[in-house]
Each structure stands twice: as C-alpha cells, then as structure tokens.
Simulated scan of single mutants.
Amino acid sequence: MIKFLEENQVNLQTITDHLESSGIEVVKQEVNRNDASVLLVTGAGLNFRIYFDDQRKFLRFSTFLPLDPSRAYESKLRLIQRFNSELFLASFSLDKDDDLLVMYYMSFVQGINLAQLMKVTIRYAELLEHIVESRNCDGMIKFANDADNNDDDEVNENSSSNDDIGMPPNTFLN
C-alpha cells in the first residue's frame, strides 16, 4: 500500500512521525524562528538535517563535511566540480568557511509519497557515507577528530560554520 500525504498534511511532525515509524532514529527535532528541521545520523555516524520549508513546499536534506583548511581553495573547487559531475542526487558547494556543503531538495507540492521520502532519506545517507569512505582518498575531507583521534559519543551542534543556514557540525560519532 502506497502511503501518500496530501500537501496540506505535510509538516515537520508528520515527516518526523513517518521517519520514526519506519525505524529511522530522529536525534532531534527543532522549530526555530524560520527553520523547522529534523536531525538524523547515518549508520557510519554522519549527521544531516531535513529542513521543512512550508512556504516554498520543499524538504531540504543538508549537511556539511569539513574540508582540510590547509588545502588550497582551487583544490577544494576541483573537488566540488568533480562531485557535482560524478555523484548523483545532491548538489555540492563550498560554504562561507570553505567546508563541503551537500544539499538535496525534494518538493512536496501536491503532496509526498512517503515511500519515496524514505528512499531519498536512505540514499542521501548512503551518499554521505560513500563520499567519506570511498571518495576521500586524498584526505580532503578532514574531521576535527581525525587530527586528535578523539571519538565523540554525542552529536555536537555548537558550530561556528554555517551558522547563517543552521547546518550541524559533522563528525564521526562511532
């Protein structure tokens, strides 16, 4: 049975409820002045958010992956260009701190097929893991705990990066 939500039924709570009832752990749900989002963590420990934009009728899947600050800006741009041309689903760009911003938009104009939402959520998580595990041979993506071998057990949301768009910091949690 295909479960479909009409456009007027799509909201942060119905999305969160569906994710949780499908077995995906929602780490945090937030409703701020202009943002409503759900924080999720991949099996490999990468966090990402699904933002709910009621005005424009979009869900935005997004996160950032920290890039090695010692690398040249041009090499970061080459990485962005390569990912945009070779990887499916998301768009890639640099944020104001030169970190890798990974975003995907899903419209819910005229409603949303919840099975498709789950497919996109799982594929987005798999994409993030693929980037970190298979596409980072040169070490361009560099987590804070890569340098000091410090394992985190919790999601740390105190980020100076991307404060203007509300992105979570991204670290391996496992």
Rank of each mutant, 00 (worst) to 15 (best):
M1D: 12
K3W: 05
F4I: 10
L5F: 06
E6D: 12
E6N: 08
E7D: 01
E7W: 00
V10S: 05
V10E: 05
V10T: 08
N11H: 06
Q13Y: 01
Q13V: 00
I15A: 01
T16N: 09
D17L: 09
H18G: 12
L19R: 04
L19V: 11
E20V: 13
S22W: 04
G23I: 05
I24W: 01
V26E: 08
K28D: 09
E30P: 02
E30H: 14
N32E: 07
R33L: 12
D35K: 13
A36L: 01
L40G: 00
V41I: 15
G43D: 15
G43C: 04
G43T: 10
N47R: 11
N47W: 05
F52W: 14
D53T: 00
D54M: 00
R56E: 14
R56M: 07
R56W: 04
K57F: 01
K57A: 01
K57D: 02
L59E: 06
F61C: 03
S62E: 12
S62C: 14
S62F: 13
F64T: 07
P66V: 06
P66L: 05
P69C: 10
P69E: 10
P69H: 15
R71L: 15
A72S: 15
E74D: 06
K76V: 04
R78L: 15
I80R: 03
Q81D: 14
Q81R: 13
R82F: 11
F83M: 08
S85A: 11
A90Q: 07
A90S: 08
S91C: 12
S91Y: 10
K96Y: 14
D97C: 02
L100H: 07
L100A: 04
L101P: 01
L101D: 05
V102F: 11
V102G: 01
M103I: 11
M103T: 15
Y105N: 12
M106F: 05
S107R: 00
F108Y: 15
V109Y: 05
Q110E: 05
Q110S: 08
G111C: 05
I112G: 02
I112L: 13
N113D: 14
A115M: 06
Q116D: 10
L117Q: 10
K119S: 12
V120Y: 02
R123H: 10
R123W: 04
Y124D: 03
A125T: 11
A125R: 14
L127M: 13
L128M: 00
E129N: 13
E129I: 02
R135H: 05
D138S: 13
G139Q: 15
G139P: 01
M140G: 02
I141R: 01
A144D: 06
N145T: 04
A147D: 08
D148K: 06
D148A: 09
D148F: 06
N149T: 09
D151A: 12
D151N: 15
D151R: 13
D151W: 15
D152A: 04
D152S: 09
E154W: 09
E154D: 13
V155C: 10
V155L: 08
V155S: 04
N156H: 13
S159G: 07
S159V: 03
S159E: 10
N162E: 11
D163Q: 14
D163N: 13
D163S: 10
P168W: 02
T171I: 03
L173G: 02
